[in-house]
């Protein structure tokens, strides 16, 4: 298979082509801006050898390829967010040509405009919370061996009860952190906890949340995160960002 296709990164407010000239797309390709009504569609040309249906299926199963393309996609969207308001697309919107991309975007024009209205002047921050064993609390395992089977069972039941309470307390604490940060943000979303195999972090993730924050409100949001982090064991609360507003770019949300 050969030939080329159009890859769509984001839908934006009208943007001058020259303001994206510093950015490079997937594989280092230059970016173009298609005008669709009052929207800009930021695209680049990709090869069908890589993004045709079959090669793409194969490539998506290759974590190395995926990691590279995901970072390149993200870099474009990050760059756009610095010059305009952009609704980031999910990776993999590939069209036979620019015209077809424009037609698809035109159909969602109204919804895209509404989303841009929500995103103007705002940015996304991520906050994750992990279960961290407090170092100061030694395990309360009695040194002696249980004197009887009954004693063993009693101890065992006590351990299990403590664990259940701990888990519930941690979950409630994660809820509290989410609510606290929700109160200093415009919108808030909770995502599934990340898989330890992918994140490389073995500690259980209690909270994986995204917050849409006014740029002007950034210091207040950061102070709130710091306050919450300081009240908890080191490393329990982690902040990431700013991100392009991926988590708030969905059209089917109320």
């Amino acid at each position: 298979m050969s030939g080329s296709a159009t890859y769509l990164y984001a839908v934006t407010r009208p943007v001058d082509g020259s303001s994206v000239s510093q950015l490079r797309g997937i594989g280092g390709a230059p970016l173009r801006v298609l005008e669709v009504g009052e929207l800009g569609c930021v695209v680049s040309t990709v090869s069908l050898d890589e993004f045709g249906e079959e090669p793409l299926q194969r490539n998506l199963a290759d974590l190395g390829w995926l990691a590279r393309v995901a970072r390149e996609h993200d870099a474009v969207v990050q760059g756009l967010a610095e010059v305009t308001t952009a609704v980031p697309l999910r990776l993999g919107a590939v069209y036979v040509d620019d015209g077809s991309a424009a037609v698809r975007v035109a159909r969602l024009r109204a919804a895209a405009r509404a989303t841009l209205d929500v995103l103007d002047g705002r940015e996304e921050w991520g906050v994750k919370m992990y279960a961290v064993q407090p170092e100061t609390e030694p395990q309360t395992v009695p040194a002696d061996r249980p004197s009887s089977g009954l004693e063993y069972l009693r101890r065992r039941r006590g351990e299990l009860a403590r664990k259940t309470i701990d888990a519930r307390a941690l979950a409630e604490d994660a809820d509290a952190v989410f609510e606290e940060l929700r109160s200093v943000s415009v919108l808030a979303r909770r995502h599934r906890p990340q898989d330890p195999a992918l994140s490389g972090v073995k500690r259980p993730m209690l909270l994986n949340a995204a917050f849409l924050v006014d740029r002007d409100g950034r210091p207040e949001f950061h102070r709130a995160v710091e306050r919450l982090a300081q009240a908890r064991p080191e490393g329990a609360v982690v902040r990431t960002g700013p991100w392009p507003p991926y988590s708030f770019a969905t059209l089917d949300d109320a």
Partner: peptide
């Protein structure tokens, strides 16, 4: 997580 699972979805041709 963001690039694959979040973000606007507009159907592609391919």
């Amino acid at each position: 997580e963001r690039v694959l699972d979040k973000g606007l979805v507009i159907a592609g041709d391919i």
